[in-house]
């Protein structure tokens, strides 16, 4: 191989690696930028330093085999619904989510996922995870469990209704 050829090869390879790292750096920067926005929220373990935002309504979510139960307080008192959630548009909510045994012997790991809201959060036994979201459109959306949790896992799904 000639010296010139070798240098060209080295150049091409270096160019590729640098170009690729620029693309990756852009993606990583985008990642940091989006996650620093105030309306971005990701599943976080509840602890002393991690409190529920002041302006949001807490909804206690309990995953058990094989359903989701949602508990929250409004003007008419304590509301509980199973596999169905009715919320108001342009209002901020915080899920406080955990997993219990229900009628089965074990509390197992679940994962609440609302595709159209772009949020998901694990329901872990003995741990409270929080996630904050604000629905911006009215309509009916699906919610699913996406962490395998037993043989009726596929029935652990329901609907979120957002009303004006």
């Amino acid at each position: 191989m000639s010296e010139k050829n070798h240098n060209n090869k080295l150049k091409a390879e270096a160019l590729w690696i640098v170009g690729f790292m620029v693309v990756l750096a852009f993606a990583a920067g985008l990642n940091f930028y989006i996650t620093s926005q105030s309306d971005f929220s990701i599943a976080t373990k509840m602890s002393g330093s991690n409190q529920i935002p002041k302006n949001s309504t807490p909804i206690i979510v309990d995953g058990y085999q094989w359903a989701w139960s949602f508990t929250y307080y409004n003007a008419s008192g304590k509301q509980t619904s199973v596999d169905n959630l009715n919320i108001t548009v342009n209002h901020t909510y915080t899920f406080i989510i955990t997993s219990t045994a229900g009628s089965q012997s074990n509390a197992v790991i679940h994962d609440l996922y609302i595709p159209q809201f772009g949020i998901q959060v694990y329901a872990v036994p003995g741990q409270n995870n929080t996630i904050t979201f604000t629905p911006v459109k009215t309509g009916t959306f699906v919610l699913e469990c996406v962490e395998y949790c037993g043989y009726e896992h596929y029935l652990m799904r329901g609907y979120v209704t957002v009303v004006a």
């Binding site: 990642n31 990701i42 998901q120 872990v124 995870n129």
Partner: peptide
Amino acid sequence: MESGLGIEWGL
């Protein structure tokens, strides 16, 4: 990522 690691570990 969604198990409650939080944003710092996530990043």
